[in-house]
């Protein structure tokens, strides 16, 4: 564990709490993409299957259970409790392509052609593009509640810090994880426009609006 990874994990954790806070405080899931949330639930469930096979640490186990449980809880909130506040007209990104593309990539790029490894690769590739429906929704509405932008920032920042973590581990442990690296770079790149607007507007006290 190094500082980048710890802060990254805490940001990831924070992003989920911010999202829950946004939904509970405003009693609305307006501005949140159900499709992105669905993809994250799929990512967590397919990646953390090793909960049943491998013990790493209490920290690791608790975080994994939390990510799976919270992602499913958010789906429940959006689908049932606050269903009336969700606008499917704005959430029209075709996730079939993201899912299909991730399946194909996982079948080609994996460490072993067994279900667990293919699903792990699948989750890595899917995570890298899972934010697209949310960013697409943002581009359609052209603006966002500030708390929603904090959520997206924390979620994007987590993988950017993982890049620092991987660089650290490469330098000090010689550890290289090539698929996660590539996916992580793509994932962070997809956020770059968002980061720029977040930095120039939200952090200067202005509302998040697309130029």
């Amino acid at each position: 564990m190094n500082i980048f990874r710890l802060v990254a994990d805490l940001m990831h954790l924070a992003s989920i709490f911010i999202l829950l806070l946004k939904i509970q405080k405003t009693r609305s899931c307006a501005g949140i993409s159900f499709k992105t949330q669905l993809l994250y639930a799929i990512v967590f469930v397919t990646r953390y299957l090793d909960l049943f096979t491998t013990w790493i640490s209490l920290y690791n186990t608790i975080m994994k259970i939390f990510f799976i449980a919270s992602s499913i809880y958010i789906l429940y909130l959006m689908k049932y409790k606050f269903r009336a506040t969700y606008d499917p007209i704005l959430d029209t990104f075709r996730i079939e392509f993201l899912l299909g593309g991730s399946v194909i990539l996982a079948l080609i790029f994996n460490y072993d052609f067994i279900p667990m490894e293919i699903l792990w690769s699948f989750s890595i590739f899917l995570e890298s593009v899972a934010i697209l429906p949310q960013l697409f929704m943002l581009s359609r509405t052209g603006e966002a509640e500030t708390i929603t932008t904090h959520y997206i920032f924390a979620l994007g920042g987590y993988r950017a810090l993982y890049l620092c973590n991987w660089l650290w581990r490469y330098i000090f442990d010689g550890h290289v994880e090539v698929y996660a690296w590539i996916a992580g770079v793509i994932q962070t790149a997809l956020y770059s426009d968002f980061f720029y607007i977040y930095y120039t507007k939200v952090l200067h006290g202005k509302k998040f609006e697309l130029p």
Binding site: D9, N60, K64
Partner: peptide, 10 residues
């Protein structure tokens, strides 16, 4: 070795 440590991350 490539990939050997990856399972300890989230």
């Amino acid at each position: 070795e490539i990939g050997i440590h990856r399972k300890d991350e989230l």
